[in-house]
Amino acid sequence: MLAYIIRRVGQSALVLLIVGLVAFSMFRFVGDPIDNMLGQERTVEDIERLRAQLGLDQPFVVQYYKFLEGAVQGNFGVSYRQGRPVAEILLERAPATLELAMVSGVLAILFGIALGVFTAIRRDGVFANVIMSASLIGVSLPTFLIGILLIYLFSVELGWLPSFGRGETVDLGGWSTGFLTESGLKALILPSITLGLYQMTLIMRLVRSEMLEVLRQDYIRFARARGLRDRAVNFRHALKNTMVPVITVIGLQLGAIIAFAIITETVFQWPGVGLLFINAIQFVDIPVMAAYLMLISVMFVGINLLVDILYFFIDPRLRADRSGGH
């Protein structure tokens, strides 16, 4: 087991190195950093000084190493647009995105699994078919349209919920949370539904198809042939086997939620890192783009690693070297 985890950590580190290389190349080759940092009025000395200061006169590998070293310490340079350290901006914005992603993720997982199991078991039921058809609309409905629709209904027409922003936030030692105020919670409702709905649909459809696949397996037939109750067959036998492949995708979906937050944050003007990123793209603010890329990669890779480790607790076949042998 330890060997397996070490190997997975190694692979994760490799992915991060590659992403780091991409991020660094963006820094180095997309637009001239010197151009971006110095205005129109610059002297040759200025350029040379900055070049040396940024280490741009050193070999590529050394620069890459320096970049990684900086990245590990949270140093991603200075935003071209805001003129402040990128890390500082990101930290300020992270709580908004993380809170939104967390609520959406929980919604998506809970409802996704429940509805997926339901539609698989009641495969030919009317209600299950209605859910399935609705889910196809859900998949085809771009996230931003869902957001606009919700804003139109609940903000413009009914006036119940705010259409933008986080509401009031409370500062908890550097972490600004919207969980503790009424306006903060209210502001969270529409964005988290918008963000969670699409992921929920995906999880539901996946759970359904995996579950149907599992229900076709011999061991399910055998369980039925032994006269086990439907509940035991569906939940004890089928659902557990369904979860093995589903967990990977749920892991990926959690990552996707953070990425898709870009869209939701734009629709709701939610002051998170996603909105920051989209503005960075619009203004070609490379340091912010690169830092966002690194940050989100660390999250994805971390989630994937967690998922792989989680497998051990579900699938005994992977635990072979621990419990096997007698």
Partner: peptide
């Protein structure tokens, strides 16, 4: 590992 919309955004940005 990355959602394709994010990859597309990055490529677009670059």
């Amino acid at each position: 590992t990355f959602p394709s919309i994010l990859v597309a955004m990055l490529i677009f940005g670059i």
